[in-house]
Amino acid sequence: MILGLINPLTGTDDIWIVGDPWYRLIIFCLLAALLCTVVLGAIHMAGNQATRLLVMGCAFAAGLFYVLEFFIPPDAKSQEVSLWGVNLTQMSGIIGNANQVVAGFTFLLGVYNLVHIHGNNIRRLRKGWGYSLSFFIAFLAMTVSAFARDWQSFFDPKYDELKNTAGYQLWMPSWVNDVDPTHALMPHDIFSVLFEGFYRNMDATMFSILAFYIVSAAYRAFRIRSKEAAVLMITAVIMMMGQVPLGQAITAAIPKDGFWHGLRIEEISQFVLNTINGPVQRAIGFGLGLGALGMALRIWLSLERGTYFEETS
């Protein structure tokens, strides 16, 4: 029943009364909006103590669902977990997909945030407002060109099949939506120019600047002033040179299969990675895992101090 209620497109008629799935969806959305308004209104109007209890209750219930779904032994045949007639395994799928929707709103929040900040910069002509203007130009150019290119495919189900056939009417000119098969690898439309020509190269450039800073920082800061620094330096050089052909050429004279093969720089580098680095990473992993478990328990049981859990003045 619960599955049918929260899944309006596939839910059974006896719950939904209305047979048409699209009407069900509309009713579902309206009911969900109403419920959200009531809950948010209640949170807003309630006192600090009640709000805290509500948040703690929601956090505990959300965590409890996954605890039950994980620990209750599944049905031997279907491998699905049920509790009092409710199929928790199927429900976890719906919750997983619902989470995608909720997480999708964070993108909207991100866009709103950017628009708000850069809009204020332009409105008040703050220092560097030109950069804010370039944000709006870039944002609109990418959004409009991407939607314009794919617009026809959203509404015409036969678009992909027919787009290259003679007589098929394309809604957009070729500079907006280039379907020429000879341009398949680099369409001559504005979105491809913006994405492949601008975005991809600019993002790569931003990241590659890091290499210059790393060299400069290594040169300035990596000075052997203690035994520990010396060990670190030797290891770094072995790792750095052991990873590239030029470094490997230093010990290329040592036979690959002979007794001394372990002295080849790439072998030493692999030894450091496997035998020294491996256990250290494992130890860090265990520590992180235990820390994450502790943190998860603290959040689930509302023992964590911070937002929503502190006394507010």
């Binding site: 290499a211 790393i214 060299v215 290594a218 040169y219 300035r220 990596f222 000075r223 052997i224 330096m233 770094a236 050089v237 750095m240 040179m241 990873q243 590239v244 052909p245 030029l246 470094g247």
Partner: peptide, 17 residues
Amino acid sequence: GQSFAHLYIFIMLVLGN
């Protein structure tokens, strides 16, 4: 290219030290 970049870092480390 990557090989020579690593070599360059090595040279810079030697000069610094």
